[in-house]
Design a protein around this nucleic acid. Structure first.
Lengths: 345, 345
DNA sequence: CTGTTAGCGCTTTCAG
DNA sequence: CTGAAAGCGCTAACAG
């Protein structure tokens, strides 16, 4: 009877296989728990025969290692935290897809969160992430509160800031100069012969920086003011249409070029212009930002500012991996940008 | 001298504040580590005065609790795993945004991964996630390998399958019937008087199920075959254009209606049709799927199949929370769908 | 190649 | 209200 009871509590009858431990596996394979641990992390240090018996025991029990315990003991979580402004903006998620995939190949998992527009909540989110003891952390943008900077520095892990650039990163930054991008578009449009310009901008700190650089430069070159239509929080086709409509109805902008802070709003602007009978680019030219996958597929194909997001993903991931491996790393990576000339401007 | 040395190693000089422990905080506040733990998780069980001293010590040291140790000791990670097919598909990420936000308000963090199209790798990904001992896990779709099902059941945690529906979920499922959706669109288009139809479908198991239900039903109603153009892996505007071009160039489909597996490909189809001089919906009508945010903003506004993603997010999150709290929960939630009639069909 | 011994930094009883 | 003791399941030296 007592034996039967033991059996009922034994590993074969654990309905909850997540509670199977290395000790259980070891017992079944006739070795200690430590050998099981070794078999999993340093298989070369365990004999072929033992390895096989352990593998059998793992299969029989459905053992799934407990990474929480592993992380606590080893002080390495194999977790990389990532904070992006929005989960639904392809510009950020396509970067994340590359970044995660790259890191996954090296055994790291990415803990991804959306920071949203509430800058105040970033601090709390950072603290929550740090409590998981990630091996590295990635942030979007270069503006963070003093408290956040302090916490991040205190964490003693690699910190990567992306999508913008500064001489004074917390640790590493990889991105490009938004001011220079806005300026470059102004010069491009002026060179194309446009005497008037307007902007359509989302409520995003980096977009606003591009816009102001654009307006400043274009005004300097053409002596004409640059009206702006703000789309509010998130760029979208609908917001772009509305902004374009607003520009036409409520400013004296009738011909020239529009610089949009996103390909989405640019697409919306084009739709609105077509609906109203304007020809793009003959009557009004449109420039987007981001080179999203559809930019070349709309009509007319969209002229836009391209940043190599694939390279951004790889560089960010490699910077993390290099730092983690103790290899020397550059702390500032300027990716640059490129104006992709298509038909819309 | 020995004292000085102690100071140099003391908590005030730890550059690495992530190594400040509750013991350090307690020492500074004149209490033991246990009291610090209590102050954080059950503040009501600690005296006002002690609480204040502990709070001061936390501020002074920059202490960030170690959730890894906490999870190991308490067997609760406050982590919820989520696996979605793609990080760049708004249909999934907009759901995730709602889901995470909702869970975050209840103290859970979401560990998000992209499964991609490689069905085989899902198993490995599930195992990796389970090793973090999440308190619950969310999967997209209802088709998982036997091995995966076994592991998931063994984990002894709530499992939510979304975006599809079945009588036999692993635990909980919340979604809608894809077959019924395809069928409903066929009936809608037939009722609109269309005698011919075609489909544009991405390489996605659920999209294919909608397509075959559509084709079967439409053929039954109209006695005419339904040609399909497959866009391959991911739906996009570009893929939609190509597929539409292919349909016109390589099938005898010239008039009628096209049912697309995504609003993106539908948008692409419309652009291609306009480019070729066809009028939508007079010459060819177009129906999308998903009701993405731009659907009403393109020209003509897109008729599409809408699923309430917001409700999906809330229901999925609430199911998890209910289950975790031991409240009774329904295991199958059918969200249904709705054909949104706009101008394109 | 395998085992022993110590923790990792918390939470959870159980005492006082 | 506070403390002492006992782990959670693993990894990291160190022996053998």
């Amino acid at each position: 009877m007592p034996n039967d009871h033991k059996m009922a509590d034994g590993i074969f009858n654990k309905r909850d296989t997540s509670r199977v431990t290395m000790t259980d596996v070891g017992r079944l394979a006739g070795v200690t728990q430590v050998t099981v641990s070794r078999a999993l992390s340093h298989p070369d240090k365990v004999s072929k025969d033992t390895l096989r018996r352990i593998q059998d025991a793992i299969d029989a029990t459905g053992f799934v290692p407990n990474a929480v315990a592993g992380a606590l003991a080893s002080k390495r979580s194999n977790l990389v935290s990532a904070l992006i402004p929005s989960l639904t903006n392809v510009v950020y998620t396509s970067f994340m897809a590359t970044f995660s995939q790259h890191l996954r190949q090296h055994g790291y998992q990415v803990l991804l969160s959306e920071t949203g527009f509430d800058a105040a909540s970033e601090d709390a989110l950072i603290a929550t992430h740090l409590s998981r003891r990630p091996d590295a952390i990635l942030l979007t943008g270069i503006h963070h509160s003093d408290k956040a900077r302090k916490q991040l520095q205190g964490a003693g892990i690699p910190v990567v800031e992306i999508w913008d650039i500064t001489d004074d990163p917390i640790d590493i930054c990889v991105g490009f100069n938004h001011h220079a991008a806005g300026r470059a578009v102004a010069e491009y449009l002026k060179a194309k012969g446009h005497a008037f310009a307007a902007t359509i901008t989302a409520d995003d700190e980096r977009a606003l920086r591009r816009q102001s650089a654009f307006a400043e430069r274009f005004t300097a070159l053409s002596q004409s003011a640059v009206p702006d239509a703000n789309t509010g929080g998130t760029a979208s086709i609908g917001a772009g249409r509305e902004a374009m409509a607003h520009l036409i109805d409520h400013s004296d902008f009738r011909k020239g070029a529009v610089f949009c802070s996103s390909d989405l709003s640019a697409h919306g602007a084009i739709i609105e212009l077509h609906t109203r009978g304007y020809k793009v680019p003959q009557d009004i030219a449109v420039v987007g930002f981001g080179d999203q996958d559809f930019a070349g597929d709309i009509d007319p194909a969209l002229t836009t500012v391209a940043v190599d997001r694939l390279q951004l993903g790889h560089l960010a991931a490699n910077s993390v991996l290099d730092k983690l491996a103790g290899r020397p790393t550059k702390s500032v990576h300027d990716l640059g940008f490129k104006i992709l000339t298509r038909l819309s401007a």
